[in-house]
Design a protein around this nucleic acid. Structure first.
Length: 602
DNA sequence: CAGGGTTAAT
DNA sequence: ATTAACC
């Protein structure tokens, strides 16, 4: 390994990061706009998960206890947000909306309320056509195909705010630096435009950051929190003695840097504060505010030392180098391509107390049902009807509410089923409870019967619990050990995409093209500018979307994996029911089943 | 370190 | 197959 000098940041890209403002609250407000002026919060279990800005003005904040919130603001309106399906739906809708403005498909979601977009290609295209002698009367092309689509803008300035606040605007005259700056200016105007479309057509406001990589774009957006946008201009002095990026990163608390989570942050703090962050007898609430600069300045900080400190069993290789890069604002990770199917589907719930078999079985059934429903929503698509639409006209086939399943096929088959629990730690002698959030999990092949569309979700869920989940649970919590769960999570992972899979066409397996449903955008006309929008950036555009969305990616290599899932040979017709847990158990297995219960009951 | 997740990298 | 990290 070489002693690296300043390996330069790559500033060749333009990345936009969107963050929808108080998203959960905004979803409720979109449906019920009268909430907007009122203090409004969304509750999950006993906490406020988010609240709108009116509520924040009155002293509420995220992750606040309900009681405390009501005391602080008796007028607050609270809605329950434990069922997250509407948030998921809204998130997908907004994501798909933004995606229409992407040319290269590099658009990535993080959680429900954040999206990155790599607009390098769009910026470069516009850079080629822009008139450098009349920058303040520029036109931004938002479509390659239709040159009437776009908006007027002033390319001499950034849209919105910038990080070096009012940086030396035209400091460098030598092409390269200005070119960098110009690219980000274009990016900022495009960001303003998309953000504006979002607000006009979907009713959601967002906060955005524009920079040359994912890390910086996300962080810089935070500077103007509600409804703002900020561009980070990478300005390095010629002698490398000063850098806006370094300055920007330096001020951050170490744990605020994306990619440095709880554990890494703790280790870095220990390094800087020498060995005493937590559990320091004598001190309880020390200020453990360690900044990026403190770590970066620290003598023991180079890639190798960091690797020794942070690397270990279970950590990714090269973590030291990665962290070193993050501290310096370097992040070469790509904005990932939009995917047509998720990598994983999981659902979970948490419990105050879950320590008996009947309760567990009930909860497993509930979770399994939701999981199967979600699989049918996210993984099932209409089988291609060739032009002549299949009876989707008036004739609702026999009342069938399940009619929708008729012509459906699976876009992907998850191959793995995973059960995760978070055991509640037993009480200690002093009555305290070792706080541990650790999860444990067990996985197994997902039985193929779950893909059957003729059986009801309820029936399939029961079968899944009986034939897979119970034995998995037993491996996580072996007999003899008493358990009390604070969380149960069920997931299907390891998606095998079924691209050209054709079981029906014997022998004939023509590579089938499938076109994604195209979102049909009506023509839009924008008339209003956002607060932060400079008046000259008012956009006036007409859009049409004939976006081809070809699914690229590895061919499915569909290994067998279909054809005859062998039933668990020990499962016969279940005729008896367990008196303890109520599950149906084949007679020959009842003895073992009972044994399963008894030691657990102490 | 709350709650209901998702993703990436072992 | 399991965990860390992120929202």
């Amino acid at each position: 390994m070489e002693a690296r000098k300043v390996l330069p940041r790559k500033d060749g890209r333009v990345i936009i990061h969107f963050d929808y403002d108080c998203f959960y609250a905004a979803v409720f407000e979109a449906k019920n706009p009268s909430l907007k002026g009122l203090p409004f919060a969304v509750q999950q279990k006993h906490i406020i998960v988010t609240c709108n800005y009116e509520a924040r003005r009155r002293g509420l904040h995220k992750l606040q206890l309900i009681n405390e919130a009501r005391r602080t603001c008796p007028d607050v309106i609270i809605e329950l947000g434990e069922d997250i399906s509407k948030f998921r739906d809204a998130s997908k809708e907004l994501y798909n909306f933004i995606k229409q403005y992407s040319w290269n498909g590099r658009i990535e979601r993080l959680g429900f309320d954040e999206v990155w977009m790599d607009v390098t290609d769009i910026v470069d295209y516009n850079l080629e056509t822009i008139n450098r002698h009349d920058l303040d009367h520029s036109f931004f092309y938002t479509s390659r195909d239709d040159l009437t689509e776009g908006f007027d803008f002033d390319a001499t300035i950034h849209a919105g705010h910038t990080y070096p606040k009012d940086a030396v605007s035209n400091l460098s005259e030598d092409g390269t630096l200005n070119e960098k700056d110009l690219r980000l200016k274009l990016g900022s105007h495009f960001a303003m435009f998309v953000r504006h479309q979002l607000e006009q057509h979907k009713g959601y406001s967002s906060t955005v950051g524009i920079a040359t990589n994912k890390l910086l774009s996300k962080l810089v957006g935070n500077l103007k929190k509600p409804k703002g946008q900020t561009t980070l201009r990478p300005i390095d002095s010629i002698d490398s003695n000063s850098s806006s990026v370094i300055d920007f990163m330096d001020a951050h608390e170490i744990g605020k840097v994306p990619g440095i989570g709880f554990k890494l942050a703790q280790k870095l703090r220990e390094l800087v504060l020498q060995r005493a962050t937590d559990r320091d007898p004598g001190y309880s609430g020390i200020k453990e505010h360690v900044t990026v600069s403190q770590v970066r300045i620290h003598p023991d900080i180079d890639c190798d030392k960091l690797e020794k400190l942070l690397g270990g069993p279970g950590s990714p290789h090269g973590i030291g180098y990665t962290v070193w890069c993050l501290l310096h604002g370097i992040d070469d990770s790509e904005v990932s391509q939009a995917r047509s199917v998720p990598r994983q589907i999981s659902i979970e719930d948490s419990y105050i107390r879950l320590d008996t078999m009947p309760e567990l079985l009930k909860e497993l059934n509930v979770l399994a049902r939701s999981l199967l429903k979600r699989m049918r929503i996210d993984l099932l698509c209409d089988t291609d009807d060739f032009g002549g639409s299949s009876d989707d006209t008036a004739g609702d086939d026999n009342h069938a509410s399940k009619s929708s399943l008729a012509g459906k096929r699976w876009l992907a088959h998850p191959k793995t089923l995973r059960l995760t629990t978070r055991p509640r730690m037993p009480m200690q002698v002093d009555g305290t409870r070792m706080r541990t959030m650790k999860r444990i999990s067990h996985s197994c092949p997902l039985p193929n019967f779950v893909f059957g569309l003729h059986e009801s979700v309820d029936a399939l869920a029961e079968k899944l619990v009986r034939e897979s989940l119970l034995s998995m649970f037993r491996k996580l919590h072996p007999e003899k050990s008493w358990w009390n769960l604070s969380l149960v999570n069920l997931a299907v992972t390891n998606m095998a995409e079924a691209a050209g899979e054709s079981r029906t066409a014997n022998g004939r397996n023509i590579g089938n093209m499938f076109k994604r449903q195209e979102d049909v955008l009506k023509d839009y006309r924008v008339t209003e500018a956002d607060d932060a929008v400079p008046s000259n950036a008012v956009v006036d555009g007409v859009y049409d979307t004939t976006r081809e969305n070809v699914v690229v990616g590895p061919m499915p290599e569909n290994k067998d994996e279909d054809s005859g899932w062998i039933e668990d040979d020990s499962i016969g017709a279940a005729t008896d029911y367990c008196h303890t847990c109520g599950s149906s158990v084949p007679p020959f297995a009842m003895i073992a089943h009972q044994r399963f219960h008894s030691p657990a009951l102490r």
